[in-house]
Amino acid sequence: MTRGLLGRFGAGIITVFFVYALTFLMVVSIPGNPLQGGERKMSREVEAALRSRYHMDDNWRYFADFLGGALHADLGPSFSYPDWNCNQIILSALPVSMLVGGLAIIVALMLGVPLGVVSAARQGEWTDASFLSATLTCISIPTFVIGAFLLYIFAVRLHWAPIGGWGTLAHLPLPVLTLSLPFLAYITRLMRAGMIESLGSDYIRTAIAKGVSPRVAIWKHAFKPAFLPVLSYLGPATAQAMTGSFVVEKVFGVPGLGQHFVNAALNRDPGLVLSTVLVFSALLVAFNIVIDFLYTWLDPRIIEAV
């Protein structure tokens, strides 16, 4: 098993490298100059000085320098925020995003799993239909509308939540709730599908026929195999949630990482684009490995497959 994990780790590192190379290629090839942009243009001399300062004249050198720096945990300067380097930007934004994203995943899990189990147990009944419609509705309205609506009701009208700013407990519920909705909907549906399949399997039918109460059959016997698809979804979902969502951050003013994905690309800030992508893909690989580990722990049959 350790060998399997080591192999996964190696493959993960290779994936991250290729993600980096691909992003680099895209960043270099898109039009637009990171140093020019506003109404006032900088002179040729100024631009030349800046280019040399950021080693932008030689793409290959920049490619190697950035990679070398990243290996020493130094992500280099950011063009769009000259007073800060990418390390500081990531360090200030990532914990916020991880907190909000982590909480959102926990909320989605704690609500989505029971909802999915209950609707599977009552498949085809009104409960099932209403849960299904509710979760579908959650994902059919854009997050920015839901977020703005929640903000208007709870912050502007009821004054239960603060507007903007960051750092207190009261700032958390609205963004967490908004961010969790799409994950919640997906987890519910995965859980429901898994549970239906697992409840239809022979051994559960046998167990019920032998007199095991449905409650025990559902929660004890059918639950574990039904949870596995949810578990494998959790890897990418957690990585995605923890690297922030631009929409949620913009609506609620959360100083998270999601805004940098968008702004760095729009500002053509190569250092920051590469940094955010590296963080995202590293997190994705890490969570997938953790999930694989959990998977083998829950379902030892997988080891043979690996």
Binding site: L151, A155, V156, H159, P162, I163, G165, V251, G253, P255
Partner: peptide, 18 residues
Amino acid sequence: MLEFDNLSASIMAYESGD
């Protein structure tokens, strides 16, 4: 000096007195 990415939100914060 606070930084709000969202102008509408800053107006809401102003209206609420923050």
